[in-house]
Nucleic acid binder design. Structure first.
Length: 514
RNA sequence: CGGGCUGUAGCUCAGCUUGGUAGAGCGCUUGGUUCGGGACCAAGAGGUCGCAGGUUCAAAUCCUGUCAGCCCGACCA
């Protein structure tokens, strides 16, 4: 079974690629290095994510807009930290015309742009240049804008969804009259991301600031959500930046306050990307294929009518259509985004049932229903839950009367079960290190071959002296980074840095990362 | 920019050492039997062997050049 997919225990990175390919989510683009084609199945997942996130943004007072793909080089260099941070991964447009010479197409040297255009790696600069025109008075604030867009970052090494040259994302860019309000926005949005990750993706996350070394270029500080993948590595799943007045000063965005004084505006920006799809895969999926939490599943339920011939299939199909109609007619609520339950009827009668089951498991449909001649006799069906793969997750003899309600409840149970399972895994894989020796043992040196079938890594809570030097040393020596300084309830417990013995204000989380 | 590897059917690859009619599995098409956990049988379609040049009676195979892609390293909020 499932011979197309490399088992996780054998080679986790290969397993990931197999899932992306075999579940039909995406493929590498031909001829355009590092870019991906997001296939209809993968894009449907992204659309579900967009819908969930967009609602959360609107509910917190944001509106959508759209800004240009191209950024004049001069804008880009106005904020120094950002220019420096992104300089090495920018695509640049230098010409605007081709010409045909002897039947060959070439760039027309006469069509050189006077000023080069940067393909946006992120849009702070072009947006704050625009905000300059939009903001005059405190009455114009706050400005709470989000855009859904693509960006380009010319990375050396790419992996489908996790790091691609071009990717899809949303970026929020807000302007505020006060520092306090902007900081509150920064926190609000990281909590929105946490809510989305935990309640929609069923992916538990740690929340807290990044170190100064890891923050966004141009930010005063960066808050993030960090998730643990099944191999124990960390995935930065979303970031929310407090930008202070850096961009307002760079683009001269000022407003008159109530006292008729001129002030610079305060800024935030925040984003999540198609990388979330990678995180979703590496949080829940298994050796049989993709596992999608019901709240994000493009198809919630697939019904497989069974039968060896038309005489047997007819009643199965009728019963399947009946059940599908009942499922679609259930009252709508927030859990399903006020949309009907998405049901598909699988009529691949030319394939064997086992093939059909395996196919739906591969594609991660949360619930599969089987209705065959034996069920019709008993007015029943079989219901299989994707989070428990194979026959173990299948319940026979579920009465067709009341099946719709049963399935709806099952979908909610699966959503919760996936979250609980992921959280339990992270807790199991989280430890504290109080000495350097303990720490060393947790991050052994290993090369690519060791990596393939290795034991999952851990999140390690340890004291750190707060310096860049120590952080850089740890990254170099142990290939582990400080994922965040997690928010804790009450007062953080102080201690001494396990690397230098200097004082530490709180434990931070170390992990190897994607 | 360093180091390594690969280009043969839609996909994965064998064949190359030792030159002699282009191969397998998967996928696809058609027919039949199957079919409540990834079926089987039969028939069939499908390839300028990356490209160019050379050696030879004869080149996927040997030689030279060239192009493309992949992996590792440097890079990565």
């Amino acid at each position: 079974m499932a011979e197309k997919i490399t088992p996780r225990a054998k080679n986790y990175p290969q397993w990931y690629l197999d899932i992306v390919k075999e579940a039909g989510l995406a493929q590498n683009a031909e001829g355009v290095k590092g870019c991906m084609v997001i296939k209809p199945t993968g894009y449907a997942l992204w659309e579900k994510m967009q819908r969930g996130l967009d609602k959360l943004f609107k509910d917190t007072g944001h509106v959508n807009a759209y800004f240009p793909l191209f950024i004049p080089k001069s804008y880009f260099q106005k904020e120094e930290q950002m220019a420096e941070g992104f300089a090495k991964e920018c695509a640049v447009v230098t010409h605007y015309r081709l010409r045909s010479v002897d039947g060959r197409i070439e760039v027309d040297p006469a069509a050189r742009l006077e000023e080069e255009l940067i393909v946006r790696p992120t849009s702070e600069t072009i947006i704050w240049r625009t905000y300059k025109d939009w903001i005059q008075s405190y009455r114009d604030l706050p400005l709470l804008i989000n855009q859904w867009a693509n960006v380009v970052r010319w990375e050396m090494r790419t992996r489908l969804f996790l790091r691609t040259t071009e990717f899809l994302w949303q970026e929020g860019h807000t302007a505020h009259a006060t520092q306090k309000e902007a900081e509150a926005e920064t926190h609000t949005m990281v909590r929105v991301y946490q809510k989305f990750a935990e309640e929609f993706m069923a992916m538990p996350v740690l929340v807290g600031p990044k170190t100064d070394g890891q923050k966004f270029p141009g930010a005063v500080y960066t808050l993030c959500i960090e998730a643990m993948m099944q191999d124990g590595k960390a995935l930065q799943a979303g970031t929310s930046h407090f930008l202070g007045q850096n961009f307002a000063k760079a683009f001269d965005v000022t407003f008159k306050n109530e006292k008729n004084q001129e002030e610079y505006a305060w800024a935030t920006s925040w984003g999540v990307s198609t990388r979330l799809i990678g995180g979703l895969i590496m949080t829940h999926s298994d050796d049989n294929g993709l596992v999608i939490p019901p709240r994000l599943a493009p198809t919630h339920v697939v019904i497989c009518p069974l039968g060896r011939n038309d005489a047997e299939r007819g009643p199965s199909i009728t019963a399947a259509e009946q059940l599908a109609a009942e499922l679609r007619a259930l009252p709508r609520d927030e859990f399903f985004g006020y949309e009907p339950i998405a049901v598909k009827i699988d009529t691949m009668f030319d394939k064997q049932p086992g093939f059909r089951y395996a196919e739906h498991e591969l594609r991660g449909v949360p619930v599969r229903v089987e209705i065959g001649p034996k069920d019709i006799e008993k007015a029943a069906c079989a219901v299989a839950r994707r989070d428990v793969p194979g026959k173990e997750g299948k319940q026979f003899g579920v009465p067709l009367t009341g099946a719709a309600a049963h399935i709806e409840k099952l979908l909610r149970d699966i959503q919760k079960g996936l979250y609980d399972r992921a959280l339990a895994f992270r807790q199991r894989q989280t430890v504290t290190a109080n000495t350097l020796d303990e720490f060393k043992a947790l991050f052994p040196a290993r090369d690519e071959k060791d990596e393939a079938g290795a034991e999952p890594l851990k999140f390690v809570y340890a004291h750190w002296d707060g310096t860049r030097e120590t952080e850089d040393m740890v990254q170099k020596e142990y290939k582990a980074t400080i994922r965040c300084l997690p928010f804790v309830e009450g007062t953080p417990e102080p201690g001494t840095c396990i690397f230098t013995g200097k004082p530490s204000t709180q434990r931070v989380v170390f992990a190897r990362a994607y």
